[in-house]
Design a protein around this nucleic acid. Structure first.
Lengths: 130, 130
DNA sequence: ATAATACATTCGACATTCTGAATATGATTA
DNA sequence: TAATCATATTCAGAATGTCGAATGTATTAT
């Protein structure tokens, strides 16, 4: 690739990361603060392995970091400037509606969603209704 | 695709359009105002057919429009908000260096590059050195 | 140690994108 | 009308991305 083009490769790589509905949705969930994988899973109703795959891409690109706490691994956005990019694009395309929490409240066993049930839910597979 | 994900499709499609070095470079050239294809060709040293292909993608997405003037077809960005997206991303990745005009000044036969030579150059294939 | 839990990785079929080559089109001039 | 010019389109092989299935790993409870 010519030299002038190669200087556009870093932003192009980041755009590629944003060029997928599921990854945009994941970033939107992470906008509310660090979240464990199972929370994203419940919010978006996507498979866990699939979410891990996408999170790895973000991690490799330096956009997110993770932190383990017991069973859960919490992901957070480390470059919040990315949200400015998202918002600017939304001004062109229209803002997607907020992602409803109702499903996560019912099915997510993580401490963030059901703090009072942690002792009961976590560690014993007692998820309520799929 | 689930409903929550489909609402992220429009921005994802636009990011996909930006996820390519050549297309970012083309947008950068168009930032200086409307340009004919041969000018973009000379500035970026890319093949004409290739540039036409990328411009068609932008046109289909409603980002650029074109206007014929004699032999030349001039392209312009119709949604300048896209440059705000670009600038925000550059604040994350670093701004690419400016694209040098020197090559275009020598090899581009379009009126914008060589206004004094239009009568002589255009319409008679007298391009100087490749 | 064993089992359960949350998450990660690998593999592979399938779909999409990239990009060069060849060719077509539409405006202009002779 | 024929030739020329700027630009557009089509085609095909290669490269890359998508995403499900199966499996692996680290941590915690018993």
């Amino acid at each position: 690739m010519s030299n002038v083009l190669s200087s556009f490769q870093p932003p192009a790589d980041l755009y590629k990361l944003l060029a997928h509905p599921a990854r945009l949705a994941i970033l939107t969930v992470l906008r509310e603060g660090e979240q464990c994988v199972c929370h994203i899973e419940a919010m978006l109703k996507l498979r866990q392995a699939y979410i891990s795959q996408q999170l790895k891409l973000f991690k490799d690109a330096g956009i997110v970091s993770d932190r383990r706490d017991g069973w859960n691994i919490y992901y957070r956005v480390t470059r919040p400037e990315i949200f400015t990019v998202l918002d600017t694009m939304y001004s062109l395309t229209g803002q997607p509606p907020a992602i409803p929490h109702v499903h996560a409240k019912r099915t997510c066993p993580c401490p963030k969603c059901n703090p009072e049930q942690v002792a009961a839910a976590c560690g014993r597979g007692s998820q309520q209704q799929t």
